[in-house]
Design a protein around this nucleic acid. Structure first.
Lengths: 340, 340
DNA sequence: GCCACCCATGTTAGCGCTAACAGCGCCATA
DNA sequence: TATGGCGCTGTTAGCGCTAACATGGGTGGC
């Protein structure tokens, strides 16, 4: 149906060379017109654009990256694609990087530090101009690889105090502590903590929660910690197990909203009064949490903003500038609702 | 803290040349050892790996892509990162492609066909070995660009009958129709349809739903269709609006589970009996839907499998083979639960 | 004992683009 | 009218890697 593609090179692609010939100019002018049309005269730019469109020219980033030192790629490693928290962060990153011409190259570590190292090695083959990693707990080799790559990097979600290290996030400990203080304030005494997917952030929330309870003179919480992936269904199961083990529990902090929502749904089904018999609180404040009846108390985390700010910080670093801060605390919001 | 990086090239990177020298061999052997170590003798391979590790060599995909015509990249365009359906599909794709050494290069079109075209153009600059697109409704220019790029492509989520076009998905119309038939079977008469984010798939569900109702002798449903992004909160609002406009409505099909869950939550809050006063059904069967009380009826869609199968099909095409089928229908499951 | 063949390895010549450095013409200034 | 500077355009030389074609030494058949 379509005419033959113009081609002269071995690979059959339309190259800059051909565009140059068609526009009656040199390759370098085509290159300049595409990268920043202000570098050539308006007439030449127009002629080049026209010739390129007519030929169906598509630039080759690989060749460009090879010839210049810039790839316009940013490597991003997140633990999981099935956790909205990280995906929203990704959306924030892309929203900032994409308009600047940068392409995210992402990989999923499944929460495994060794896998993160392997993935980073693979992503560095793209010669990214910058790197975005989730969390601050990495294998020593990962850190070494990062320094030896000489690429600017920003860590997301948690805050880092290491000199020379950049991070954007909030204090997970403080988030956990905020829930604890809220429970104490409300007068709950027999308090439980339920966690799954025991990644560093989950553990940090737990330790903040625990410390705040102790500081308030309450002993250690009843704990239920399982390594499995968090899910709504698991939250229901874990609520059952917690109440079976400690029937008099009057408040439970779930390390994330998936678990907390599952627990709330289970209470609804079993006819357990919330917060009458047992109070519930979660973490992350997923959209559903504000809509359930009773509405779920949760710690709202700024993951979308973290993505945006981390991307902005990386942009600064990639431009060779020094960011305003090397450690950006975006905080969190304690949303007390009806379950506590 | 670490010693100086070995370097001799202008860019300061450790190159294959240096690895070759250190291993006492030629570049091509290093290249072969890295791509398929069976191409060199075991001893040489070991020596090369060792030298590479000692020098901290990281291969350069840009150079490789330029020299070989294969980029080992796959371009993926999805409408949104904030809709789990597409993200789960992405996870399925990555699970298949990643072990084969392919890197996904993704972009988000925000449901805009013109944006999709722009993004595809950008992604083609990566010279991907294959392309994965969401849906079958594309701009004519997008299709033209796709053919002129001469890259194998697979369309996901919907099914396509165009000759020469590959697709993996299920019939959205049939999904909508299944809900309609279920409502009819249960004896509901005053039926409503609520939709948001009016993308082609949403509209297809609606038209399937409508046709099946008519086929059953029921007239057109009461409809509420808004262009805004779907969300749980919007589902609550739309339920209110539907019941305000048609108080006697006895069953409502929401075009996705976000809306349906929001509606259910709103019914819980307002004390509206579900399904006693009004029956509810959604689409996609998100994890929460099975856990609410009453549990939500929904059409379970195989988005994760779609991602996997589309990736497998693309793998076949990229290998120059002909896939078993050019149109893979993965079907759906109607999960009747308590809301209807 | 010669030759075809095969395996492991090496040499050469780019892939498509851009950095770096020329040129060239034109205008403002002395 | 000479001089310097500026804005635009062009030439040259790679960036790091791999395809394609050598090369060299061993093996087996007759």
């Amino acid at each position: 149906m379509s005419g033959r593609k113009p081609r002269s090179t071995a690979t059959g692609r339309v190259t800059m060379q051909e565009v140059a010939k068609a526009a009656g100019t040199s390759m370098i002018s085509v290159s300049r017109a595409f990268r920043d049309s202000a570098m050539v005269s308006p007439e030449l730019a127009a002629r080049i654009k026209e010739a390129a469109a007519a030929l169906g020219y598509v630039p080759d980033r690989a060749a460009s990256a090879l010839a210049s030192a810039r790839s316009m790629n940013v490597a991003v490693v997140i633990p999981s694609l099935t956790n909205t928290v990280f995906v929203e962060m990704l959306a924030g990153i892309d929203e900032i990087l994409s308009p600047q011409g940068y392409q995210m190259i992402t990989a999923t570590s499944f929460y495994a530090p060794a896998e993160e190292l392997r993935l980073l090695r693979g992503l560095l083959a793209f010669r990214p101009d910058g790197v975005l990693l989730t969390g601050i707990d990495h294998l020593p080799e990962t850190l070494k690889l990062l320094t030896s790559s000489a690429r600017p990097a920003v860590h997301m979600m948690e805050l880092n105090n290491q000199p020379g290290s950049y991070s954007v996030g909030f204090s997970q400990e403080e988030g956990g502590a905020a829930i604890a203080r809220h429970f104490v304030e409300r007068g709950y005494k027999k308090i439980g903590f339920v966690a799954a997917q025991l990644d560093p952030r989950t553990l940090a929330r737990g330790s903040g929660f625990r410390q705040a309870l102790e500081a308030a003179g309450l002993g250690a919480p009843r704990e239920l910690m399982v390594p499995e992936r968090s899910s709504i269904a698991l939250g229901a199961t874990l609520l059952d197990r917690m109440l079976a083990a400690y029937p008099d529990t009057d408040a439970v902090f779930f390390c994330n909203d998936d678990l907390a929502q599952g627990a709330l749904f289970r209470c609804q089904r079993r006819g357990i009064a919330v917060p009458g018999q047992v109070a519930l609180a979660g973490f992350n404040d997923l959209p559903a949490s504000a809509c359930t009846t009773p509405a779920l108390s949760s710690v709202a985390t700024p993951r979308y903003q973290i993505g945006r700010e981390a991307a902005k910080m990386l942009l600064e670093l990639m431009a060779g500038r020094v960011p305003a801060s090397f450690r950006l605390d975006l905080g969190f919001t304690l949303n007390i609702r009806e379950t506590s």
